[in-house]
């Protein structure tokens, strides 16, 4: 019996990946490869490192798809979280900091990242992106600034404090307030 993988839910793909079905991983890559590569690239600022991180994440999915918990996160969140953490680990291990002068919150995209989703899902994702974009724009500039360094730089509290010449307590407060406000706007 054939099953149309291209229209399968993300969770079904993961389940089939646990059975070592390479076609399911291929479809998952079509849906999220571009997004994960983009997340990695904007964190590490290097194409080769971004490729390494993206491959590493999908290989991890191939080996560990069974550890995914649908009650804890969406597949997209699970994948982007793995990618961010892998990229931040790499930055900290290598002790390097990418330049982020070329990107600001205002530059963030509202265009779809992947073309492997159903039209309904793609529209839903695009609406979400537009909403997030608008929500980020509502934050005070000082909160945008620290969140930007935390989100794209993987900077720790103390590193952000050094970078902006601010007390650590001030950085912590701005990040906490910024995230709380985003949450209030996006998850009322």
């Amino acid at each position: 019996m054939s099953v149309d993988l291209a229209t399968s839910e993300d969770q079904v793909l993961l389940r089939r990946i646990t059975y070592q079905e390479a076609d399911a991983l291929s479809v998952l890559y079509d849906r999220y490869g571009r997004l994960l590569y983009s997340v990695a690239y904007h964190l590490v600022g290097d194409a080769h490192l971004a490729e390494e991180i993206t491959l590493d994440v999908f290989r991890r999915v191939w080996e560990k798809a069974g550890t995914y918990r649908a009650d804890r996160a969406s597949v997209r969140t699970w994948l982007t979280s793995m990618t961010r953490n892998r990229a931040i680990d790499m930055l900290r291990r290598e002790g390097v900091r990418p330049e982020h002068n070329s990107i600001r919150w205002a530059d963030l995209s509202v265009e779809p990242h992947a073309d492997g989703h159903s039209p309904e899902t793609a529209v839903s994702h695009q609406l979400q992106k537009q909403t997030v974009h608008n929500a980020l724009g509502q934050l005070p500039p000082e909160q945008q600034e620290v969140l930007f360094l935390a989100f794209f730089g993987g900077y720790s509290h103390s590193q952000i404090a050094d970078e902006l010449d601010l007390p650590v307590g001030t950085v912590k407060t701005r990040i906490r307030l910024g995230m709380q406000k985003l949450r209030h706007i996006l998850q009322p």
Partner: peptide, 25 residues
């Protein structure tokens, strides 16, 4: 975590090389 997942989805798109998927598969 879901909030950060939403934020991650807004990063500007950078196209990975086509060879990346071939390498993975």
């Amino acid at each position: 975590q879901e909030l950060i997942g939403l934020m991650a989805a807004t990063v500007p798109t950078v196209m990975p090389p086509a060879s990346l998927k071939q390498q993975l598969m």
